[in-house]
Write a protein that binds this DNA or RNA. Structure first.
Ligand code: SF4
Ligand code: SF4
Lengths: 161, 161
DNA sequence: TTATTATGGACACTACAGGTCTATAATAAT
DNA sequence: ATTATTATAGACCTGTAGTGTCCATAATAA
């Protein structure tokens, strides 16, 4: 249960892009060298970010990447979901066991199917809650919010034209 | 980013143990059949739970497993951490990149090393926060809280002596 | 003593993270 | 139009972790 390195790279790449909005495009070379990662691997990650609309890419001389939204509109959740996928935190397996009957069946029967066919048991309800809390927190933190913090702490060698 | 199946099994096993506190010991056979999992695999998981002190185990005839604490004192976080380990949600890799200098060095230098050598950057600070929120939520949900919910919803064929 | 039960180790299979390399496509500058 | 430059997509490799089985051994209550 850990975020992958790719998420790490993606976050740092976006932070770099957000930080250097002087000339529009940042090439994979500059990006890879500042992050200390191989160009090969990072380009895959950037490609993913592009497919999900977080960045734009343009080939050719002086090409490279740029953010497709403002930094305030790119949340940690966005980045994480692009890289890690949108699978549930908890995916139940044995819905046909005896356990299931005790914890889920009675409920949906008694409460006569609250909403559509969601059919969620008590365990999943807890896990859903955990996921929602986590997502909410990650939605509240954006690339910009990190950049702001960095500026506050006396780091002023950025955004120089 | 998903909890493993083992966590699923562990939770269900503990729920079953918490639910049947009539005769003290529940064997791996009963446990495995009610969960619909193989005895082989489940026994490994139970072994882990024992090593971390969540359950007690006794071999021999009429042996089996029993909870070593009350159901209110076994939180979702406990179970998850036993199975998934206690690694951080986010583990940074390239602390020697240029990025790192921009986001972390300046801070620890400016704030003159807030606490001991923790040396946490802004990215990690966000992730730490996420982890803390998640943990707090998971700490508030116990085996007992799920069992209580189950009872409330009209399921009364449990705890029969 | 014995039948029963948990435990630990060895092993196999699969999926995926992490990473490299190369050929191709797209673009801007000339 | 050509060319140099850059991103993209695919094939490929490696190691490791999750999932699972099987068996030999240890511990225990009857
Ligand atoms: S009780 Fe919930 S978690 Fe358990 S098997 Fe049923 S749906 Fe899955
Ligand atoms: S800035 Fe933070 S996340 Fe990035 S490399 Fe440094 S310590 Fe790691």
């Amino acid at each position: 249960m850990q975020f992958s390195k790719s998420t790490d790279y993606a976050l740092h790449a976006l932070l770099h892009l957000g930080n250097s909005e002087r000339c529009n495009n940042v090439g994979i070379k500059e990006l890879a060298s500042t992050l200390g990662v191989s160009e090969s691997y990072l380009s895959k990650i950037m490609s993913k970010l592009r497919q999900d609309g977080l960045v734009r890419a343009v080939p050719g001389v002086n090409g490279g990447y740029e953010l497709s939204r403002s930094t305030e509109q790119i949340t940690f959740l966005d980045v994480i979901q692009v890289i890690e996928g949108r699978q549930k935190l908890f995916e139940c397996s044995n819905t046909d066991s005896q356990q299931h009957r005790l914890l889920a069946e009675e409920e949906t029967a008694g409460r006569d199917q609250e909403r559509s066919g969601k059919c969620e048991c008590l365990v999943q309800k807890v896990m859903e809650g955990a996921e929602q809390h986590l997502h909410q927190y990650l939605r509240e933190h954006t690339i910009q919010s990190v950049l702001d913090e960095a500026f506050k702490h006396g780091n002023h060698e950025t955004n120089k034209k």
